[in-house]
Design a protein around this nucleic acid. Structure first.
Lengths: 233, 233
DNA sequence: CAGTGGTCTAGACCACGGT
DNA sequence: CCGTGGTCTAGACCACTGG
């Protein structure tokens, strides 16, 4: 074997991928064990291991102790979307970012919210409406609820200047979140803030954030008409 | 130092993460170098390396040779969406999957498509309309164009039984793709196939797939009203 | 119980990128 | 130039899991 000793895990990864693509190892079959590949490629087992581990992370192969490494039948393609701060998104487009806080109310959590975020009945929350502009055109409308108990400091926060997203990210980074994307028909409020006719089809991102099992915030971010979220893989 | 020798990279990762969260190492600061951490934790440098590398992959820290490892200021959270085959999605909901091929036409690529996929003018493509049902209710409408030159075998493919997505995935796995999500107002066709009023707000996924720089397929997958794509991170 | 991947080690050399 | 992370090695032990 040992054509020309591949000694970087990049090379090994590429070679293994090539064999899978070229059906040398068709979907469902098992690859040789790590030690065998190490011998074939003339490298240490750790190097093969690193290559295969990354292929497993990418969902190309599946590894199990004792059984070995096998090529996944229908490769599940997973795309990665980076959810940036809106300001970033806008500035990346070389547009001028402007932010406005349209509403800030402290009140007891409405029942639907309390049940959604698992709050005690009547627990106090901060309800915000914000609009993010790109070159003075509305880009995103943000409707956010913050659980005050989870971040008491928010009462003192100056959210006139900094968006709540950025403020929260700096205050309580590294939270767990649940995200969903969907399409909605603009309600009167969204239509007004975004400057579109009512019932316009809009892209919306919903995110619920938790810190150690305690809900921090629920936000609906509704984008201007025609917005598309993109990525490649 | 060396409180209690942490010797698994999991433990080290957790400990480093804890220190970042607890602001022992605030955003923007540099962590000790790998060798120092290895000494502190009483383990090999490779172990520290593995832990820090994974934190870098997660976008928690940023590493650069010579400079060192620093805590990212505003952690960019990236969510991973698995784009499964529709059949999977439906079956995962314990619903009955049914598929119908509504149209199959072979024709020269229209100009907009040719320019979009970088095809020669008039190159022949296969144009398909498919509907995927969950428990006999329309779930997704698929409008797909396939570049015949890229996958000649598609001419013989029986797309009555297997959806083109599954067929393509088996035939040409491991392609590059560009994806975008957005909201659209249903046109007459989409409205009819999905059984909703015209202009209903619908969630749509567009994907362009390439194999070695050659366009393979462009597809618009439009979901039933109310559909949301979910994930957590 | 035994086979395969999972992980750790101690040491080495290399490559990038500030100074 | 030279410090820091990037990677490789040879060898070892461990942990899960299939038979």
């Amino acid at each position: 074997m040992q054509s020309s000793p591949l000694s970087s895990y990049h090379e090994i990864k590429a070679e293994v991928l090539r064999r899978i693509k070229d059906r040398v190892w068709p979907a469902g079959t098992y690859l040789p064990k790590e030690t065998e590949l190490a011998t074939e490629f003339g490298c240490a087992r750790a190097t093969v291991n690193r290559a295969l581990r990354e292929l497993a992370d990418q969902g190309i192969v599946e590894r199990k102790r004792k059984s070995g490494t096998k090529v996944i039948a229908l490769p599940v393609r997973s795309a990665r979307f980076t959810i940036e701060i809106v300001r970033q998104t806008i500035e990346d487009q070389n547009a001028e970012y402007r932010y406005a806080l349209a509403m800030r109310v402290e009140e007891p959590a409405p029942d639907w919210l309390a049940s959604r975020l698992n709050l005690r009945r009547g627990q106090r929350v901060l309800h915000l409406h914000c609009v993010h502009y790109a070159d003075n055109r509305p880009f995103q409308f943000e409707d956010r609820w913050i659980n005050i108990a989870a971040v008491p400091a928010v009462r003192e926060a100056d959210l006139q200047t900094i968006g709540p997203n950025e403020w929260l990210l700096a205050e309580v980074p590294f939270t767990e979140a649940e995200i969903s994307f969907g399409a909605i028909a603009a309600n009167a409020q969204q239509a007004e803030f975004l400057g579109v006719p009512s019932a316009t089809a809009l892209f919306q991102l919903e995110r619920t954030t938790y810190l150690r099992d305690q809900a921090v915030t629920l936000v609906h971010m509704t984008y201007h008409a025609g917005y598309r979220m993109m990525t490649r893989y």
